[in-house]
Amino acid sequence: MKNSSLTWLVAEREISSKLRSKAFLISTGILLLIALAGVLIGGFSSKSPTPDAVAATSQTAQIVKALPNVKVTEVADRAEAEKVVKSGDVVAAVLPADDPTGVVILAKDQAPQSLVMGLSKAPHVEILEPASTNPLVRYLVAIGFGVVFLMAASTFGSTIAQSVVEEKQTRVVELLISAIPTRVLLAGKVLGNTILAMAQIILLAAIAVVGLIVTGQNEVLAGIGAPVLWFAVFFLFGFILLASLYSGAAAMVSRQEDIGSTTMPLMMLVMAPYILVIVFNDNPLVMTILSYIPFSAPVAMPVRLFVGEAQWWEPLLSLVILLVSCVGAILVGAKIYENSLLRMGSRVKLREALRG
């Protein structure tokens, strides 16, 4: 068989084994439910509260309409205004008056503080650097991209590592490489898990779209479309980079309990984007630097695209850097994997695995 056919054969084996695993299916379902709940909660919490009904005459209607979160009910005179206020149809009424403020507020039993504050005289404010997006929405988007990257990369990375060590422990790998070249076996493992990881990303994107539509966040949906596509592209190559390194690191040990010692540095590289992007999501300089580092670019660059801080050429340059890093990781991971796979017993040192 050709190497391409053998690669697909190994990939199909990886995919079918995961789809038969109840633990994998349950964890995937929980992840999707958490994502949907997060989008819905974020959407409902970011919505404006129900507008307050306020009565106003033709003379004061324009003043009241300029206030935020207010619905104006026009009345003819003071008598009608008192009637709707006493009946509870409106929270208050704003009428013209002969005093410095020019208006008087009629309330039923207590003064509506938000209305009083809104009508108070205040100096004109000029914003020199207006925020391009709502800080809460920006924070939620950063968390969303970070959590998806962290969960998918760590979950599938650990799965690949466990699969490699299990095959070494049971000596199945000796039978496999007698029929399949070592690098083809590695390529199949990476391909199969990449397909599963991308399927999860597509499902999460679909759930996010549904959640945004349900919560009426059409503006966010329109603005997040391109960043989500870029995230999928960056995630694809970022995951291949990590999967190659996870496979190589796992091949250096022969027992499941030793996996943590070799994959811990990779786990830190997976967690770094989540932590740094969340902490520095509102720091343009740090976010710019993170968007060019291969391990954090899949999260940082889409966030910058969403808030409009990245130029059109920046994601292209960042993607080129990621692709070069991906090729380097594949070569290093394949060499370690090939030189360590048949070495049983104690942990293989990194220098020995690279030297062969």
Rank of each mutant, 00 (worst) to 15 (best):
M1K: 07
N3Q: 15
S5M: 12
L6A: 05
V10N: 05
E12I: 05
R13I: 08
E14H: 02
S16D: 11
L19P: 00
L19C: 04
K22F: 10
L25V: 11
I26M: 10
I30A: 14
L31G: 09
L32V: 13
L40P: 00
L40T: 07
G43F: 06
F44I: 09
S45P: 00
S45M: 13
K47M: 07
V54W: 01
V54Y: 02
S58V: 10
T60M: 05
K65L: 12
L67N: 01
L67T: 02
P68W: 06
N69Q: 12
V70K: 04
T73F: 04
A76Y: 05
A76D: 13
V84W: 09
K86E: 07
V94G: 10
A97V: 00
D99L: 04
D99N: 15
P100Y: 01
P100H: 01
I105P: 09
A107K: 08
K108F: 04
A111M: 14
Q113D: 13
Q113A: 14
S114T: 14
M117R: 10
P123F: 11
V125E: 12
L128E: 13
E129H: 14
P130N: 11
A131N: 13
A131C: 06
N134K: 05
V141T: 10
F145K: 08
G146R: 04
G146V: 08
V147L: 15
V147F: 15
A152M: 11
F156L: 15
I160L: 10
Q162P: 00
S163K: 08
V164H: 03
V165A: 08
E167D: 11
K168T: 13
E174T: 12
S178R: 04
P181T: 07
L186K: 04
A187S: 12
K189L: 04
V190T: 04
L191H: 00
N193F: 07
L196A: 08
A197P: 04
A208S: 11
V220Q: 11
A222K: 13
A226V: 15
V228W: 07
L229C: 06
A232I: 08
V233M: 11
F237T: 11
G238R: 00
I240S: 01
I240Y: 01
L242K: 09
L242Y: 14
L242R: 07
A243T: 04
A243I: 05
S247N: 01
A249R: 03
A249E: 05
A251M: 08
V253S: 05
R255W: 03
R255G: 01
Q256T: 09
E257T: 02
D258A: 11
T263P: 00
M268E: 00
A272W: 00
L276I: 04
V277W: 03
D282R: 06
P284M: 02
L285M: 10
T288L: 12
S291L: 05
P298F: 07
P302F: 02
V303L: 14
R304Q: 09
V307E: 12
A310R: 10
W312M: 08
L317A: 13
V327L: 09
I330K: 00
L331V: 11
V332K: 02
A334S: 15
Y337R: 05
M344L: 14
S346Q: 14
L350I: 14
L354Q: 01
